[in-house]
Nucleic acid binder design. Sequence first.
DNA 1: TTCGAAGTTGCAGAAATCTTCAACTACCTC
DNA 2: GAGGTAGTTGAAGATTTCTGCAACTTCGAA
Lengths: 109, 109
Amino acid sequence: MSVPLYQAKAEMFRTLGHPVRIRVLELLQDGPRPVRDLLAEIDVEASNLSQQLAVLRRAGIVTSFREGALVMYALSTTDVADLLAAGRRILGAVLTDRDGLLVELRAQK
Amino acid sequence: MSVPLYQAKAEMFRTLGHPVRIRVLELLQDGPRPVRDLLAEIDVEASNLSQQLAVLRRAGIVTSFREGALVMYALSTTDVADLLAAGRRILGAVLTDRDGLLVELRAQK
DNA sequence: TTCGAAGTTGCAGAAATCTTCAACTACCTC
DNA sequence: GAGGTAGTTGAAGATTTCTGCAACTTCGAA
Protein backbone atom coordinates (compact mmCIF):
# COMPACT_ATOMS: atom_id res chain seq x y z
CA MET A 1 0.00 0.00 0.00
CA SER A 2 1.76 3.13 -1.19
CA VAL A 3 -0.64 5.99 -0.51
CA PRO A 4 -3.05 5.53 2.42
CA LEU A 5 -6.66 5.37 1.33
CA TYR A 6 -7.81 8.37 3.33
CA GLN A 7 -5.12 10.43 1.66
CA ALA A 8 -6.34 9.40 -1.79
CA LYS A 9 -9.84 10.41 -0.72
CA ALA A 10 -8.61 13.77 0.50
CA GLU A 11 -6.83 14.40 -2.79
CA MET A 12 -9.96 13.53 -4.70
CA PHE A 13 -12.03 16.07 -2.74
CA ARG A 14 -9.33 18.68 -2.93
CA THR A 15 -9.33 18.28 -6.69
CA LEU A 16 -12.95 19.43 -6.68
CA GLY A 17 -12.17 22.33 -4.39
CA HIS A 18 -11.86 25.09 -6.96
CA PRO A 19 -14.60 27.24 -8.49
CA VAL A 20 -13.45 26.83 -12.08
CA ARG A 21 -13.09 23.07 -11.74
CA ILE A 22 -16.57 22.81 -10.22
CA ARG A 23 -18.05 24.78 -13.11
CA VAL A 24 -16.26 22.60 -15.64
CA LEU A 25 -17.66 19.44 -14.08
CA GLU A 26 -21.16 20.87 -13.97
CA LEU A 27 -20.96 21.75 -17.64
CA LEU A 28 -19.61 18.31 -18.53
CA GLN A 29 -22.54 16.62 -16.82
CA ASP A 30 -24.56 17.26 -19.99
CA GLY A 31 -22.01 15.50 -22.16
CA PRO A 32 -18.61 16.08 -23.78
CA ARG A 33 -17.66 19.65 -24.62
CA PRO A 34 -14.81 21.35 -26.46
CA VAL A 35 -12.53 23.63 -24.48
CA ARG A 36 -13.74 26.52 -26.59
CA ASP A 37 -17.28 26.14 -25.22
CA LEU A 38 -16.08 25.89 -21.63
CA LEU A 39 -14.03 29.00 -22.16
CA ALA A 40 -17.08 30.84 -23.47
CA GLU A 41 -19.10 29.98 -20.35
CA ILE A 42 -16.48 30.40 -17.66
CA ASP A 43 -14.91 33.77 -17.06
CA VAL A 44 -11.25 32.81 -16.92
CA GLU A 45 -8.11 33.05 -19.06
CA ALA A 46 -7.43 30.27 -21.52
CA SER A 47 -4.17 29.26 -19.86
CA ASN A 48 -5.81 29.20 -16.46
CA LEU A 49 -8.62 26.98 -17.73
CA SER A 50 -6.04 24.69 -19.26
CA GLN A 51 -4.26 24.43 -15.94
CA GLN A 52 -7.48 23.50 -14.16
CA LEU A 53 -8.37 20.96 -16.84
CA ALA A 54 -4.94 19.43 -16.37
CA VAL A 55 -5.61 19.06 -12.65
CA LEU A 56 -8.87 17.23 -13.36
CA ARG A 57 -7.16 15.10 -15.99
CA ARG A 58 -4.29 14.11 -13.70
CA ALA A 59 -6.81 13.11 -11.04
CA GLY A 60 -8.57 10.89 -13.58
CA ILE A 61 -11.89 12.70 -13.19
CA VAL A 62 -12.09 13.82 -16.80
CA THR A 63 -10.65 12.56 -20.07
CA SER A 64 -9.79 14.48 -23.21
CA PHE A 65 -9.54 13.64 -26.88
CA ARG A 66 -8.97 15.61 -30.00
CA GLU A 67 -11.66 16.00 -32.62
CA GLY A 68 -10.25 17.81 -35.59
CA ALA A 69 -9.22 21.27 -34.54
CA LEU A 70 -10.94 20.99 -31.16
CA VAL A 71 -10.00 19.29 -27.93
CA MET A 72 -12.97 17.68 -26.23
CA TYR A 73 -13.38 16.97 -22.53
CA ALA A 74 -15.71 14.49 -20.86
CA LEU A 75 -16.39 13.10 -17.39
CA SER A 76 -14.48 9.85 -16.95
CA THR A 77 -17.35 8.42 -14.91
CA THR A 78 -20.94 9.44 -14.40
CA ASP A 79 -20.47 8.93 -10.64
CA VAL A 80 -19.18 12.49 -10.61
CA ALA A 81 -22.72 13.72 -11.01
CA ASP A 82 -23.70 11.87 -7.81
CA LEU A 83 -20.88 13.53 -5.95
CA LEU A 84 -21.93 16.98 -7.09
CA ALA A 85 -25.53 16.22 -6.16
CA ALA A 86 -24.48 15.06 -2.69
CA GLY A 87 -22.44 18.24 -2.32
CA ARG A 88 -25.49 20.32 -3.21
CA ARG A 89 -27.56 18.54 -0.57
CA ILE A 90 -25.02 19.19 2.18
CA LEU A 91 -24.66 22.77 1.14
CA GLY A 92 -28.43 23.06 1.44
CA ALA A 93 -28.41 21.59 4.93
CA VAL A 94 -25.52 23.75 6.05
CA LEU A 95 -26.79 26.99 4.59
CA THR A 96 -30.34 26.72 5.91
CA ASP A 97 -29.84 29.63 8.25
CA ARG A 98 -27.49 31.69 6.11
CA ASP A 99 -28.05 34.21 3.31
CA GLY A 100 -29.61 34.05 -0.15
CA LEU A 101 -27.33 31.37 -1.47
CA LEU A 102 -29.96 28.91 -0.39
CA VAL A 103 -32.52 30.42 -2.72
CA GLU A 104 -30.10 30.13 -5.59
CA LEU A 105 -29.35 26.55 -4.68
CA ARG A 106 -33.02 25.56 -4.73
CA ALA A 107 -33.56 27.25 -8.07
CA GLN A 108 -30.86 25.08 -9.55
CA LYS A 109 -32.59 21.83 -8.58
CA MET B 1 -25.30 37.79 -5.27
CA SER B 2 -22.82 37.70 -2.40
CA VAL B 3 -20.70 34.60 -2.87
CA PRO B 4 -21.33 32.77 -6.14
CA LEU B 5 -22.85 29.37 -5.64
CA TYR B 6 -20.09 27.50 -7.40
CA GLN B 7 -17.61 29.13 -5.08
CA ALA B 8 -19.52 27.95 -2.04
CA LYS B 9 -19.51 24.45 -3.51
CA ALA B 10 -15.78 24.63 -4.11
CA GLU B 11 -15.17 25.70 -0.51
CA MET B 12 -17.28 22.83 0.73
CA PHE B 13 -15.23 20.29 -1.22
CA ARG B 14 -11.99 21.95 -0.27
CA THR B 15 -12.99 21.61 3.36
CA LEU B 16 -13.04 17.85 2.89
CA GLY B 17 -9.70 17.87 1.11
CA HIS B 18 -7.45 16.97 4.00
CA PRO B 19 -6.52 13.50 5.28
CA VAL B 20 -7.13 14.29 8.93
CA ARG B 21 -10.49 15.90 8.22
CA ILE B 22 -11.56 12.90 6.14
CA ARG B 23 -10.64 10.54 8.93
CA VAL B 24 -12.55 12.61 11.46
CA LEU B 25 -15.69 12.54 9.34
CA GLU B 26 -15.41 8.81 8.82
CA LEU B 27 -15.11 8.26 12.56
CA LEU B 28 -18.06 10.55 13.26
CA GLN B 29 -20.28 8.57 10.90
CA ASP B 30 -20.81 6.08 13.74
CA GLY B 31 -22.02 8.78 16.10
CA PRO B 32 -20.69 11.59 18.31
CA ARG B 33 -17.18 11.19 19.71
CA PRO B 34 -15.00 13.07 22.17
CA VAL B 35 -11.85 14.70 20.86
CA ARG B 36 -9.85 12.36 23.05
CA ASP B 37 -11.08 9.34 21.09
CA LEU B 38 -10.37 10.97 17.74
CA LEU B 39 -6.90 11.80 18.95
CA ALA B 40 -6.34 8.18 19.93
CA GLU B 41 -7.25 6.94 16.45
CA ILE B 42 -5.62 9.59 14.29
CA ASP B 43 -1.88 10.02 14.35
CA VAL B 44 -1.63 13.79 14.71
CA GLU B 45 -0.76 16.39 17.33
CA ALA B 46 -3.57 17.64 19.55
CA SER B 47 -3.23 21.21 18.34
CA ASN B 48 -3.28 20.10 14.74
CA LEU B 49 -6.43 18.06 15.28
CA SER B 50 -8.00 21.04 16.98
CA GLN B 51 -7.18 23.22 13.98
CA GLN B 52 -8.75 20.73 11.58
CA LEU B 53 -11.83 20.40 13.78
CA ALA B 54 -12.12 24.18 13.73
CA VAL B 55 -12.08 24.12 9.92
CA LEU B 56 -14.92 21.60 9.87
CA ARG B 57 -16.82 23.58 12.49
CA ARG B 58 -16.48 26.86 10.60
CA ALA B 59 -17.78 25.15 7.45
CA GLY B 60 -20.79 23.93 9.41
CA ILE B 61 -20.08 20.28 8.69
CA VAL B 62 -19.67 19.28 12.33
CA THR B 63 -20.93 20.64 15.62
CA SER B 64 -19.36 20.43 19.06
CA PHE B 65 -20.65 20.50 22.60
CA ARG B 66 -19.14 20.00 26.00
CA GLU B 67 -20.03 17.02 28.13
CA GLY B 68 -18.40 17.35 31.49
CA ALA B 69 -14.67 17.29 31.02
CA LEU B 70 -14.90 16.20 27.38
CA VAL B 71 -15.68 18.07 24.18
CA MET B 72 -17.83 16.02 21.84
CA TYR B 73 -18.04 16.35 18.07
CA ALA B 74 -20.82 15.17 15.76
CA LEU B 75 -21.77 15.43 12.10
CA SER B 76 -24.16 18.33 11.60
CA THR B 77 -26.05 16.34 8.95
CA THR B 78 -26.11 12.71 7.98
CA ASP B 79 -25.84 13.77 4.32
CA VAL B 80 -22.10 13.82 4.89
CA ALA B 81 -22.13 10.03 4.82
CA ASP B 82 -23.62 10.12 1.31
CA LEU B 83 -20.88 12.44 0.16
CA LEU B 84 -18.16 10.19 1.51
CA ALA B 85 -19.81 7.17 -0.09
CA ALA B 86 -19.99 8.96 -3.45
CA GLY B 87 -16.33 9.86 -3.08
CA ARG B 88 -15.46 6.25 -2.46
CA ARG B 89 -17.31 5.16 -5.60
CA ILE B 90 -15.47 7.63 -7.80
CA LEU B 91 -12.16 6.68 -6.29
CA GLY B 92 -12.99 3.09 -7.10
CA ALA B 93 -13.82 3.93 -10.70
CA VAL B 94 -10.72 6.06 -11.14
CA LEU B 95 -8.31 3.60 -9.54
CA THR B 96 -9.71 0.76 -11.60
CA ASP B 97 -8.89 2.70 -14.74
CA ARG B 98 -5.41 3.28 -13.40
CA ASP B 99 -4.90 -0.41 -12.75
CA GLY B 100 -6.07 -1.05 -16.27
CA LEU B 101 -3.34 1.26 -17.50
CA LEU B 102 -0.81 -0.50 -15.34
CA VAL B 103 -1.72 -3.85 -16.84
CA GLU B 104 -1.45 -2.33 -20.30
CA LEU B 105 1.95 -0.94 -19.45
CA ARG B 106 3.19 -4.32 -18.28
CA ALA B 107 1.80 -6.14 -21.28
CA GLN B 108 3.51 -3.66 -23.56
CA LYS B 109 7.00 -5.14 -23.99
C1' DT C 1 -6.70 25.73 45.77
C1' DT C 2 -3.81 23.28 43.49
C1' DC C 3 -2.91 19.66 40.13
C1' DG C 4 -3.46 17.19 35.85
C1' DA C 5 -6.11 16.01 31.84
C1' DA C 6 -8.64 17.83 27.83
C1' DG C 7 -8.81 21.16 24.31
C1' DT C 8 -8.17 25.61 22.04
C1' DT C 9 -5.85 29.64 20.15
C1' DG C 10 -2.19 32.64 18.03
C1' DC C 11 1.52 32.64 15.49
C1' DA C 12 5.61 31.79 12.44
C1' DG C 13 8.05 29.14 9.11
C1' DA C 14 7.30 25.60 5.56
C1' DA C 15 4.71 23.75 1.87
C1' DA C 16 1.20 23.67 -1.53
C1' DT C 17 -1.76 26.11 -4.69
C1' DC C 18 -3.21 29.91 -7.84
C1' DT C 19 -2.76 33.16 -11.54
C1' DT C 20 -0.64 35.16 -15.30
C1' DC C 21 2.75 35.68 -18.96
C1' DA C 22 5.35 34.17 -22.66
C1' DA C 23 6.45 30.62 -25.59
C1' DC C 24 5.13 26.60 -27.63
C1' DT C 25 2.49 22.62 -30.51
C1' DA C 26 -1.39 21.01 -33.50
C1' DC C 27 -4.63 21.68 -36.84
C1' DC C 28 -7.28 23.94 -40.57
C1' DT C 29 -7.74 27.09 -44.61
C1' DC C 30 -5.91 29.66 -48.23
C1' DG D 1 4.14 27.23 -47.05
C1' DA D 2 1.75 31.40 -44.41
C1' DG D 3 -1.34 32.74 -41.15
C1' DG D 4 -4.96 32.17 -37.87
C1' DT D 5 -7.51 29.53 -34.36
C1' DA D 6 -7.37 26.19 -30.51
C1' DG D 7 -4.98 24.66 -26.54
C1' DT D 8 -1.02 23.47 -23.66
C1' DT D 9 3.14 24.05 -20.96
C1' DG D 10 6.74 26.05 -17.82
C1' DA D 11 7.97 29.21 -14.68
C1' DA D 12 7.66 33.03 -11.29
C1' DG D 13 5.47 35.77 -7.92
C1' DA D 14 1.46 36.12 -4.92
C1' DT D 15 -1.62 33.90 -1.91
C1' DT D 16 -3.39 30.24 0.86
C1' DT D 17 -2.96 26.32 3.69
C1' DC D 18 -0.45 23.34 6.89
C1' DT D 19 2.21 22.06 10.97
C1' DG D 20 4.19 22.47 15.42
C1' DC D 21 5.21 25.22 19.43
C1' DA D 22 4.04 27.83 23.37
C1' DA D 23 0.62 29.83 26.11
C1' DC D 24 -3.96 29.64 27.62
C1' DT D 25 -8.81 28.03 29.45
C1' DT D 26 -11.95 24.69 31.52
C1' DC D 27 -13.19 21.01 34.16
C1' DG D 28 -12.87 17.25 37.75
C1' DA D 29 -10.30 15.29 41.48
C1' DA D 30 -7.49 15.45 45.56
